[in-house]
């Protein structure tokens, strides 16, 4: 890469970083696009582009760029983003397949997997997974997670009134 091009790239990333930090997703999307025009193989710019689409609730476009065969190597690490887009597009089956195809079940994928199982009405599996997540997580969303667990339990109770529930 020529020194000039490299310099341009750094400048473009500085700009992108600024918009990312101010959560200006429209401008960040443009900045990421600019980088990918100079250097189409920039994985981090591609990652930012996908995050922008998702934050702008354009899940369809996020999934389109992630599924494009041309972007296969750029998208290979963005399993969570792909599954989340599928989940938001009301394709929980596909989302579950994506999650289960990941090489490692990260905390993010675990959280998403539980929500997908809920959407698929697989409440027993969902409940077991939430128990595991609650046991191993300390964050600011413990109350919300407990609310989700309650929702799972009440659905279990509605389906099997005789079951021995927590």
């Amino acid at each position: 890469m020529s020194a000039n091009k490299e310099n341009n790239l750094i400048q473009a990333y500085v700009e992108l970083n600024k918009f990312c930090q101010s959560s200006d997703y429209e401008r960040a999307l443009k900045a990421a696009g600019k980088i990918l025009q100079i250097a189409p193989n920039e994985q981090k710019a591609f990652h930012c582009k996908v995050i922008c689409f998702i934050q702008l609730h354009n899940f369809k476009e996020a999934l389109t760029v992630l599924s494009n065969a041309k972007n296969a190597s750029l998208a290979s690490d963005l399993v969570f983003e792909k599954a989340y887009s599928q989940y938001r597009l009301n394709c929980p089956k596909e989302a579950l397949e994506t999650v289960d195809g990941a090489s490692e079940l990260t905390p993010a994928l675990k959280e998403l997997r539980a929500q997908i199982l809920y959407r698929l009405e697989q409440y027993q599996d969902c409940y077991n997974l939430y128990r595991d997540i609650v046991k191993n997580t300390t964050d600011d969303y413990e109350d919300e997670r407990k609310a989700n667990m309650s929702a799972v339990v009440s659905n279990l109770a509605a389906l099997t009134p005789t079951a021995d529930l927590p």
Partner: peptide, 25 residues
Amino acid sequence: VPCKPLFFDLACNFIEFPNLDDKTG
């Protein structure tokens, strides 16, 4: 009738930009 239970999307908190420090110098 039973009410629809609340269910939160917590996975959305993991939708984050990558760290760009290595790219910005």
